[in-house]
């Protein structure tokens, strides 16, 4: 059986006056039905660009190459109109800050009506409101919130409403780009619990884009670690956390500050500039295990070890 979503050699670059910025380089990933892939990395690593590239939600100066296969269908050949219908219906997306995604001048009710009728103009207002009530109950929001404006709601309620809007058409895949980063720790845990139960209820796969390794550890079945536009390492969550292979993954895991932290660690240096062409390993300058070959030869990602994990490093 084919994967739910597959990217093949997906690359994104942005044309800028200074030259092209290579935000995503040759990324091949798979997401299976009903599972969660955690895409983790630091700011500027290209994780959000990758998420948006799947839905072709990128600015005009973006150049996309490679392909995105969803349910066996190549999305890169899909006409704009079909793509628009697919967004929200088959693949939905939620973002970090729900306040900026909801229209402040529209009642919650109208957000639902507009979304439903954009995909299905035959639904009348009453029918749309009925459907809205059903998904709101699933995200545990009282239906009287339909009559309110976004500013009248708390941050947690707003994010629940964003999730409810995503559920309207029972999409097979939800792309969640830092869905809890704007929330406090208790709310974050609440929203994650909610997402988890909804995934099961709706049999939905999730691409969780985050900088938070803790969230990935608690939530994801598979993890892909992104650095400077490439996937540095990818594999099942438990073995990857138990024995990280890429030096960047190792450094990232060591740098997490949790309740058990005894000594602080940070990865030396800072991420490279993605402007222009680069040779060698993008992590070379910061790597504590670098070799001569790393400077000049790009490390292709390949299967390493018994658990057949994908690692892009010359050490293996």
């Amino acid at each position: 059986m084919t994967s739910l979503l597959e990217t093949r050699g997906l690359s994104v670059s942005f044309e800028t006056p200074e030259g092209p910025v290579h935000a995503v380089k040759d990324v091949s990933l798979r997401i299976e039905r009903g599972t969660t892939l955690g895409l983790v990395g630091e700011s500027g690593c290209g994780k959000s660009t990758l998420g948006r590239a799947i839905l072709r939600l990128l600015p005009e100066n973006a150049r996309i190459s490679g392909s995105v296969i969803f349910n066996g269908q190549d999305l890169s050949t899909l006409p704009a109109k079909a793509m628009r219908d697919l967004r929200g219906r088959n693949i939905a997306m939620i973002f970090q800050d729900p306040m900026t995604r909801l229209d402040p001048l529209m009642k919650i009710r109208d957000h639902f009506i507009e979304t439903i009728r954009a995909h299905d103009p035959t639904v009348d207002v009453d029918g749309a409101v009925e459907r809205a009530k059903k998904v709101l109950a699933d995200v545990r929001v009282p239906s009287d919130r339909l009559g309110m404006y976004p500013h009248e709601l708390s941050g947690g309620m707003r994010q629940r409403i964003m999730i409810a809007l995503c559920l309207l058409f029972n999409p097979a895949l939800l792309i969640a780009d830092e869905p809890t980063t704007a929330l406090d720790v208790i709310l974050e845990a609440q929203i994650l619990q909610l997402l988890q139960s909804i995934m099961h209820e709706y049999n939905m796969a999730v691409l969780l884009i985050t900088h938070n390794l803790g969230l990935v550890a608690e939530f994801a079945d598979q993890v892909a670690v992104m650095y400077a536009g490439i996937i540095a390492e990818e594999g099942a969550t438990v073995p990857l956390f138990r024995e990280p292979r890429h030096p960047y993954t190792q450094g990232l895991l060591r740098s997490v500050i949790d309740l058990e932290t005894q000594t602080l660690y940070s990865v030396p240096g800072s991420p490279p500039n993605l402007l222009g062409e680069s040779i060698g390993c993008p992590f070379y300058a910061r790597c504590e295990k670098r070799m001569d070959v790393c400077k000049s030869v790009f490390p292709e990602i390949r299967l390493v070890g018994e658990d057949r994990r994908k690692v892009a490093c010359h050490l293996y």
Binding site: I186, A189, G214, A217, F241, R242
Partner: peptide, 25 residues
């Protein structure tokens, strides 16, 4: 206690079901 419990643990082998406070501040 609730705050401490809500912190995500970066270890997938120690996943547990959290008992969280209801609602929001």
């Amino acid at each position: 206690r609730a705050l401490l419990q809500a912190i995500p643990i970066p270890d997938p082998e120690r996943r547990s079901t959290k008992v969280l406070p209801k609602g929001e501040v």
